[in-house]
């Protein structure tokens, strides 16, 4: 199911691709093609996270990039609508 926010959808997609290729690389560390895909998706994920965070606040507690504490702001992920 796609999420309602296109910027967050990109984080979901690239985040899952990163999880998947990381597991594969754990057991196939010498696979060059997989390593190249990791580097490609790592960059795509970083870009997607930055774009989302600029509009909606931090995804990680060490990424609060404002002068106020936005970490505790609603909505929280388990509440739906994200």
């Amino acid at each position: 199911m796609a999420c309602k926010n296109p910027l967050l959808q990109k984080v979901y997609e690239t985040g899952f691709a990163l999880d998947e290729i990381a597991l594969y690389l754990d057991t196939h560390p010498a696979d060059k093609q997989a390593m190249e895909y990791y580097q490609y998706i790592q960059k795509a994920n970083q870009d997607a996270v930055s774009a989302y965070e600029q509009s909606y606040g931090p995804l990680l507690i060490n990424q609060v990039n404002s002068n106020t504490w936005t970490w505790a702001n609603s909505p929280w992920p388990w509440e739906g609508g994200m």
Binding site: A72, S74, W76
Partner: peptide, 16 residues
């Protein structure tokens, strides 16, 4: 316990 916490400060502190 986070899911039954109605307030943001509580949600953040339980998560963290």
């Amino acid at each position: 316990q986070r899911y039954a916490m109605p307030y943001d400060k509580g949600k953040a502190i339980l998560t963290d």
